[in-house]
């Protein structure tokens, strides 16, 4: 096995383990930290895929800003141990196996589709350092209008958050 495959398998295992911990953890803060682990593993995978800019954005915006917001709200609301409720028998005995079956089916389809057969190696010319330059050119030429529209979206989100979280007089 080559080094990229070993690196991929390690990161994939870490990501899946983090997602499982997110489900099993009873305290929201543990779930939040598990999600940070998943995002870090995914950032390494983005580097492996030759997208350093996306990896940096993933760490700065996702693992940094968004997760800090989550942790802040968890601390603010003093969220303790989650209450568990009983699930229906139907969900336990039909839903869980069917969910796993769906997952297996998706994985099987992906592994045997023509797209899955494409090897990352020879397909594209976008390698390493130049991809950030090309990405910025694309973002500020071809996708300039959507890029500017996101600034309005963020502004509206800030206003919405302010209005929602404001104390009623």
């Amino acid at each position: 096995m080559s080094i990229p495959i070993i690196l991929f398998l390690v990161c994939a295992l870490v990501a899946v383990a983090g997602a499982v911990v997110l489900i099993l953890a009873r305290e929201p803060i543990h779930s939040a930290l598990a999600l940070v682990v998943v995002m870090m593993a995914l950032a390494v995978l983005y580097l492996l895929l030759g997208a350093p800019f996306i990896a940096a954005v993933q760490i700065i915006v996702y693992a940094g800003a968004i997760m800090v917001l989550f942790v802040f709200v968890i601390m603010l609301l003093n969220a303790g141990v989650e209450e568990r409720t009983d699930f229906s028998k139907l969900a336990k005995f039909a839903g869980v196996p069917l969910g796993f079956f769906l997952l297996l089916e998706i994985a099987h389809w992906l592994a045997h589709s023509p797209i899955g057969a494409a090897i990352a190696n020879g397909a594209g010319s976008s390698a390493g350092e130049s991809s950030t330059t090309e990405l910025s050119e694309m973002l500020f030429r071809q996708y300039l209008f959507p890029f500017e529209a996101t600034s309005i979206l963020i502004l509206i989100a800030i206003l919405g958050a302010l209005v929602l979280a404001r104390k009623e007089e």
Partner: peptide, 28 residues
């Protein structure tokens, strides 16, 4: 640069999405 087949990434993506759905349904 990378010798990992794309299908590996897609399978990992599907697994993570499935776990996200499970968390969405099961968490309270």
């Amino acid at each position: 640069m990378s010798a990992v087949p794309i299908s590996f990434y897609l399978v990992l993506s599907a697994i993570l999405f499935g776990l996200g759905v499970v968390a969405f349904v099961f968490k309270r």
